[in-house]
């Protein structure tokens, strides 16, 4: 099984949100909706401060509660990978997956009514390209690749750099990693 991961270097990320616009145009995301977003976290008191920027999206969890909760199989792991997709033709719009996502990463497609989300740009991944957000990032702080390939850049980064995932205690085994 191909295990894809995104590795984002918070030390390099400047919070420019280019990834957000790139996603919106690449995937024709309707006005006002977002598949990805950027968080700024500042800790401390002036002048002893620390700021971290994180580009966030669906974590394409290995233990994807959204997939488990879907009553129709519309939410699924794509082609035996960990990439979580929604098949609009199976989706009833029951919204169980939305409630099941600890990262609030899903959205209701408007207009249409089916559930939409980040796809890791699998249509680009299929062609050997990086997701749109990764390929536009001006600081090169985002990386995408296969975790089951020990020589991939994401494997290398996770081997050599301190990192974290969001809310690991949910047990969802997320696959978007943040270098810290």
């Amino acid at each position: 099984m191909a295990h894809y991961a995104m590795v984002i270097d918070t030390k390099l990320c400047i919070g420019c949100c280019d990834c957000v616009v790139a996603c919106k145009t690449e995937n024709k995301v309707p006005e006002g909706l977002n598949r990805d977003w950027v968080v700024e976290a500042t800790q401390g008191t002036y002048p002893n401060l620390k700021t971290e920027f994180r580009s966030e999206r669906c974590n394409h969890c290995s233990h994807a509660t959204c997939v488990y909760m879907c009553p129709t199989g519309a939410s699924h792991h794509w082609n035996g990978t960990n990439i979580v997709l929604v098949d609009p033709n199976k989706c009833t719009g029951c919204k169980a997956c939305i409630a099941a996502c600890p990262y609030d990463a899903r959205l209701i497609m408007h207009p249409g009514g089916y559930i939409d989300k980040c796809t890791f740009c699998h249509h680009r991944v299929e062609k050997g390209l990086d997701p749109a957000c990764v390929s536009t990032c001006p600081t090169h702080c985002m990386h995408f690749g296969l975790l089951d390939d020990p020589s991939s850049n994401v494997s290398e980064l996770l081997r050599t750099r301190e990192h974290k995932v969001l809310a690991p205690e949910t047990g969802n085994e997320p696959n978007v990693y943040y270098l810290i």
Partner: peptide, 11 residues
Amino acid sequence: EEILVSVRSNP
């Protein structure tokens, strides 16, 4: 202080 610097307002 943890904030969204890109607007997120998914209905």
